[in-house]
Amino acid sequence: MGSTGSGVLELINKTVADNGTLGFASELSGEQAHMFLDALNRRVADGDTQALYATYAGQPAFFVMMNLSGMPNCRHSAELAKAVVAPGFRGQGLPKQALRALICRARELGIEQFVLDVREGSRAHRLWTRYGFQTWGILPDYARVAGQVFAGHYMSQSIEVLAQRMGI
């Protein structure tokens, strides 16, 4: 698993425990963790995913996946997924720093837009909206948690518009 894998799992589990909305109802079991890291490692090795992981003073601080499209007609677009800021590092500008790095990498890869999906009203939804992501579609039955149904927002933003917003 390695220290990076352990750090990514720690971030995911802390966020889930803190009512984060990452698609997991509870902390990952050993089997789920193994499957998640296996898939992530495979996608990174195949070039289908770029992963950004940051630590501070040896502590996991941030993680996000940028999933690239394998479809020739959609290579201009990349999906941001599983963006996680450790609870102790929230409010310190990590998403802004990560977006700067993601914009640079996206430009190197010829990606022109980011897309993502989030649960309506979640911390993530508020964060992405603050950075100018626009909802282009809403799925009313996006997630079901503890008997409750939540809507999901499908959002996007041009790399260049995002870069301009951030002064890059």
Rank of each mutant, 00 (worst) to 15 (best):
T49W: 01
Q50F: 06
Q50I: 07
Q50E: 09
L52Q: 04
Y53S: 01
Y53K: 02
A54F: 03
A54C: 05
Y56Q: 09
Y56C: 12
A57L: 10
P60R: 00
P60G: 03
P60T: 03
A61I: 02
A61N: 03
A61P: 00
V64E: 01
V64T: 02
V64C: 04
M65H: 02
M65R: 00
M65Y: 01
M65A: 05
N67T: 03
N67A: 04
N67M: 03
L68Y: 06
L68Q: 07
L68S: 05
S69W: 01
S69D: 04
G70C: 00
G70Q: 00
G70H: 00
N73E: 07
N73G: 06
N73V: 06
C74H: 08
R75G: 07
S77G: 13
S77F: 13
S77P: 08
A78F: 06
A78Q: 07
L80S: 05
K82M: 05
K82S: 01
A83Y: 02
V84E: 00
V84S: 00
V85H: 01
P87I: 01
G88M: 05
G88L: 02
F89L: 06
F89W: 07
R90G: 01
R90C: 03
G91A: 04
Q92S: 03
Q92V: 00
L94H: 03
K96D: 05
K96N: 06
Q97R: 03
A98H: 00
L99I: 02
A101N: 06
A101Q: 07
L102W: 03
L102V: 08
I103N: 05
C104R: 14
C104I: 14
R105M: 12
A106F: 11
A106Q: 13
R107Q: 11
R107A: 09
L109I: 15
G110W: 14
I111K: 06
F114L: 06
V115Q: 07
V115C: 08
V115R: 05
V118T: 10
R119D: 09
R119S: 13
E120R: 15
E120D: 13
S122N: 11
S122K: 08
R123Y: 13
R123G: 10
A124L: 12
H125I: 14
R126G: 15
L127F: 10
L127H: 09
W128G: 12
W128E: 14
T129K: 10
F133D: 13
W136L: 14
G137Y: 12
I138L: 13
I138M: 09
P140V: 08
D141S: 11
Y142T: 10
A143T: 12
A143S: 14
V145W: 13
A146N: 13
G147D: 11
G147L: 10
Q148V: 12
V149W: 13
F150D: 09
F150W: 09
A151W: 06
G152M: 07
H153A: 14
